[in-house]
């Protein structure tokens, strides 16, 4: 492996490799086991040094990155906006707060903006790619090295419900809320549970699922 490729791998780890070079490097990773091994080792060393979670490396990770790069033009605009939301910055003004609490199928397109229609419109737009990190920003590994542990033991088989992603903005709000509250010694009986249980579907007819009041 040449020094140039080592440097490219390192630059890619830092998220600073140009798109064309990334495509070239990923294709090389697919073809050369030595490169893939180095890539895994770099990630492992980085995670150990940073004491981050150590995740498993999918066997076809380079193919997945290539696929993501192909989709980048489609997703990157959404990712940027959601990441800004998650950061507490400017938000998309068309989405009202009710969108945070509800997801799932909606009726026709004629719903009033700001009602749960906004939820279904936006809840499906998930951040798909990592944006360039800002100075001082923690950046989690996009892909991770192999580790001598097997996947988790809890199975989701039998729960084939369609995914109803939880709004990243609510996720960010709640995590920062509970984190700040905890830092001050305050409480919440079930922090994060709303991020795990399925969001209610406003058309399901469950009157008790949640309420929205416009004023």
């Amino acid at each position: 492996m040449s020094q140039q490729i080592r440097e490219q791998l390192s630059t890619l780890m830092d998220g600073e490799l140009a798109r064309d070079e990334t495509l070239f490097l990923m294709r090389s990773l697919q073809q050369k086991d030595e490169l893939a091994s180095s890539w895994s080792n770099y990630h492992l060393a980085r995670q150990v040094l940073r004491r981050q979670d150590v995740f498993l490396l999918p066997a076809d990770f380079s193919q997945r990155i290539l696929s993501q790069l192909e989709d980048e033009r489609v997703h990157v605009a959404h990712a940027g906006r959601w990441l800004r939301w998650a950061g507490g910055g400017a938000i998309a003004a068309s989405v009202a707060v009710v969108a945070l609490l509800f997801s799932g199928p909606r009726g026709g397109q004629g719903d009033v903006p700001g009602e749960p229609l906004a939820a279904s419109t936006n809840a499906t737009q998930q951040p798909a790619l990592m944006a360039a990190p800002r100075p001082g920003e923690f950046r989690a590994p996009l892909i991770s090295p192999a580790l001598d542990v097997q996947p988790a033991s809890v199975s989701s088989q039998g729960f084939a419900s369609p995914s109803a992603p939880i709004d990243p903005r609510l996720q960010s709000y709640l995590i920062r809320h509970y984190d700040a509250a905890a830092g001050n010694g305050q409480s919440a009986m079930l922090p994060y549970v709303l991020l795990v249980v399925p969001p209610p579907q406003p058309n399901a007819g469950d009157a008790g699922e949640g309420t929205v009041e416009r004023r």
Binding site: L56, P58, A86, P141, L142
Partner: peptide, 8 residues
């Protein structure tokens, strides 16, 4: 782990 994103 397909689409891991770091929060700001």
């Amino acid at each position: 782990l397909l689409t891991t994103t770091a929060a700001p």
